[in-house]
Design a protein around this nucleic acid. Structure first.
Ligand code: MN
Ligand code: MN
Ligand code: MN
Ligand code: MN
Lengths: 223, 223
DNA sequence: ATCCTATTTTAGATGATCCTAAAATTATTT
DNA sequence: AAATAATTTTAGGATCATCTAAAATAGGAT
């Protein structure tokens, strides 16, 4: 029996815990959770207990939380909705990629399986959101494209710009200013030993310099 | 200074009170409110006090609530969103008119003025929702089309079907079955004295019988 | 092994929203 | 006008989500 529906807050915590889990191998600390959600550790502690009671994660005092398969399933449902709505906002309502996150944070909690199916169809079953992140399918499968930070490339190597790591408005707007768009081919012309900044070439046309920090926040395809 | 944003619950109460206000001349009772929202009178009593504190309505103990101009403005904002989303669901996502209300009840609370402006534009600035109800503009003006219940028409008179009064799924589905669609021209062929049922003609083509109850829930234009 | 510090949990409070049961008020009938 | 019925409010309590401050624990440094 699936328990009663999660509240918006529970969904937000679960999603945060999911995001903190992927990649990392150890349990997620309550501090990390409260940090991410802009709440206090005490609140995260309470919530983790609640989610554990609902079997969405394992939790032992002082040992952090481990999201369960059931928890992952629910988190991916919310993430699927978030990303589909982001596509809608950009593709259909002409929002810029730096404007959609806040609104999607709200829309991701709308409950209607049929709505999401129809939205998916309306959008042409997109595989990635405006930031290049994969959209989980109805069953919670996430397609992973092999990728690595641009900063890992060496002189002469190139890759396609697949996704951003940092999705902050300021970073996305800076990329706009530099005319660096998702899908562009990026070739490393020169990597500066001293500070890891690089000269890159976009689509074999436009050359520009970017800092190591920028480079580390751009994911490119592994060719 | 506009006070801090309303909660979903406050918005729902305010909208209910607005709907109960229009047409009626006297104050809205807490019983009527709790009835409409499927809560208890005690809860409505609490909420009415809260909304009065926020100047969204006048309220005197035992005397019911009167929504204020400020309250009306906020209620209409929510109603505008509700109806725009209903249009979106029907026009873009191919929902039937009987399926959209529940989902719009959720979507109406999404906060983003820009989103609503863009949605309005995307939909081509619709003037009415799928049930024929007018969509308030950004300033809260509601265009009213002169209309009356079909049951008020006499033999030989006709009008265009502008809106439904009852928006329940069962009524809307029944109209679908009878092939009675918004915009259709309806002519009264014969009104039965005995039970006020009538024989009508749709678009000068199809004749059928409808009960007085059905007729009283169809609004037609006053020619 | 002990101490110190950083992390984490608990205790206790608050506000929002809801409820049930009892009290107060208003409306209707005799 | 008094009695009765219906409506409405209050009292008191539950749950959720949050906080602050204090207590407990863990992990690293001496
Ligand atoms: Mn986002
Ligand atoms: Mn995204
Ligand atoms: Mn509706
Ligand atoms: Mn409607």
């Amino acid at each position: 029996m699936p328990q009663t529906e999660l509240s918006f807050t529970e969904e937000n915590y679960l999603k945060a815990i999911y995001h903190l889990s992927v990649g990392g191998t150890q349990a997620v600390s309550t501090n990390a959770i409260s940090d991410r959600l802009q709440t206090k550790p005490a609140s995260a502690s309470d919530m983790v207990k609640r989610l554990a009671r609902k079997k969405l994660l394992q939790y032992e005092k002082y040992q952090g939380a481990n999201i369960s398969p059931e928890g992952i399933k629910l988190a991916l449902k919310v993430i699927r909705k978030h990303r589909l709505w982001e596509v809608f906002l950009v593709e259909k309502l002409n929002f810029n990629w730096d404007e959609v996150h806040e609104i999607a944070e709200q829309l991701e909690h709308i409950r209607s399986p049929l709505l999401i199916r129809r939205l998916d169809e309306f959008l042409g079953f997109p595989k990635h959101d405006p930031h290049g992140d994969p959209i989980p399918d109805e069953n919670g499968s996430v397609s992973t494209r092999p990728r690595k930070p641009l900063s890992d490339l060496h002189d002469g190597e190139s890759g396609d710009f697949l996704a951003v790591k940092d999705t902050s408005s300021s970073f996305l707007q800076y990329l706009d200013k530099l005319d660096i768009q998702l899908g562009a081919n990026i070739r490393v012309m020169e990597k500066v030993e001293f500070d890891d900044s690089m000269k890159i070439c976009l689509n074999d046309k436009k050359e520009l310099y970017i800092s190591a920090q920028v480079a580390s926040n751009l994911y490119v395809s592994k060719n």
